[in-house]
Design a protein around this nucleic acid. Structure first.
Lengths: 147, 147
DNA sequence: TTTTGTAACTTGACTAGTCAAATGATAATG
DNA sequence: CATTATCATTTGACTAGTCAAGTTACAAAA
């Protein structure tokens, strides 16, 4: 009954870990009045602005609908500015958000890193990164099995 | 501006990968009329039944409120049975669900494994599992930094 | 036996997301 | 110029989750 493959064990570990660390990250970011999801999209906008909703959706792997809802929350709170530009909407950070991110980013990156720094040395982190990169890249070109 | 640590790069990879593979898993499970989240809790119930809602919440790392909502959906669909038993509610799978899981489980485990089998050999998977186990276990006893 | 506690579960208001149908903005054609 | 097409975004109905306040089920003390 317990015919778990090594792959399925890895899968479960990854799911539980990301779930858990996501919750902890939310708690950490509470002091800046941000959620992990919001921080994620704000960072992507900062790096790639100006960009369209489609491009952004792609970067954070959510659907069109998902990004639309997220952005209207962020706009309502004044974090971002959207303007109709030809058929598409162009997204930019508001000035206040640039300032907020300058402060939050180093803290959040340090927080994320601490999950690994505390238990893995430099070399082990490099190995983990390499393995996960291969797995992730492969998953992106994976096809659903038929039937 | 791109002062990404190796840890923050790993973090992002893990988030994107789990997010993506979760979506693919949802699509895969559609043929059985299940979601990934539902499959996860049904599997935990199968392994540990009978159990209480608190115990289950702990196993799948969601809150009391979250498990309550999930279970009432599952109960409405006839996948599980809850009965009041002293102060707590005891959860069991319905007979039909045991049968469904017998069929779904091997397929889903194979699907999960395929993410890793396709690109990592046995030894690499073992390494990945070991590293992630250390990272995960550590995160469970981690404290939020003060301030 | 009414009051008082307490542990387990539920619920209201919310974020975050999905899918698929509807709407908006612009272009191209009859 | 009105009609049709096309692509981007929005929206309705839903799953899945959070937090914190509210119930429920039982126990023990007054």
């Amino acid at each position: 009954m317990r015919n778990n493959t090594i792959g399925s064990l890895i899968w479960l570990r990854l799911m539980r870990f990301t779930n858990q660390s996501n919750q902890m990250s939310n708690e950490f970011l509470k002091r800046f009045d941000l959620t992990t999801a919001q921080f994620d999209v704000l960072m992507q906008i900062r790096i790639y602005q100006p960009l369209t909703q489609m491009e952004l959706a792609e970067k954070v792997t959510v659907t069109q609908g998902g990004i639309s809802r997220m952005l209207s929350r962020l706009e309502k709170e004044g974090y971002i500015v959207r303007k109709q530009d030809w058929k598409t909407k162009t997204i930019n950070l508001s000035a206040k958000t640039e300032a907020i991110l300058d402060q939050v980013m180093p803290e959040q990156l340090a927080f994320q890193s601490s999950f690994f720094d505390d238990v893995l040395n430099e070399e082990e982190q490099q190995i983990l990164y390499t393995l996960m990169t291969r797995v992730h890249k492969h998953s992106q070109k994976k096809e659903l099995p038929p039937k």
